[in-house]
Amino acid sequence: MKIVAAKKILKANDQLAEENRQKLTAAGVFCVNVVGSPGAGKTTLLEALFAALDGRLRPAVIEGDIAGSIDAERIEKLGVPVVQINTQGACHLDASMIAAAAEDLDYSAIDLLLIENVGNLVCTAGFDLGEHLRIIVLSTTEGDDKAAKYPAIFQGSHALVITKADLLPHTNFDTRRIAADMKRLAPKAETFQVAALTGEGIAPAAEWLAAKCAASATDD
């Protein structure tokens, strides 16, 4: 006997992600999935964004790492509520991990939930977590060919944040090349160029995030 299913293999994840999104939306929490390679500067970017937002929003963070809680400790130092997920070797977060982590967060005390995904440009692309936006973080030291080499993760992202912009003079990173690739892959995505350690370029990225967060609050 043959059963014709014709169903998405990741349907279970997609359904749970949709539930996550509905719960977040209902609670007035704007959720962003932050993806990028290990060492791209995701945590440093979050630290700089929180400093720039300067208490304007009530943020919280879910940290996804294969092991340890180094990043979560950095966020905790800023007084931002944080939940650490250890994926025990898995290369990405999935919707069920977010649902479990959310139980440790008080949505009524949060406006903005940033999920820092596991450092990975491949696997994180396949799993919807229930976020409203996805930001891809790419550092100048990684090279300007990453969008062409890992198109899926760039294609589904709503913003590109180029980090370590202060190192541009020391690399052969061509911002025109990444801009051209993004124009093909994700024409609607915003691009920001920042140096999180010096604070250069952080303000426009923080403003954009705050505006997205506010726009989603008025939509409800």
């Binding site: 006997m1 059963i3 293999i9």
Partner: peptide
């Protein structure tokens, strides 16, 4: 360019 399709990830059928 417009690129369509090629992103399928489906369980099409099972034969028991």
């Amino acid at each position: 360019l417009t690129i369509e399709g090629g992103r399928e990830l489906l369980l099409q059928s099972i034969e028991i």
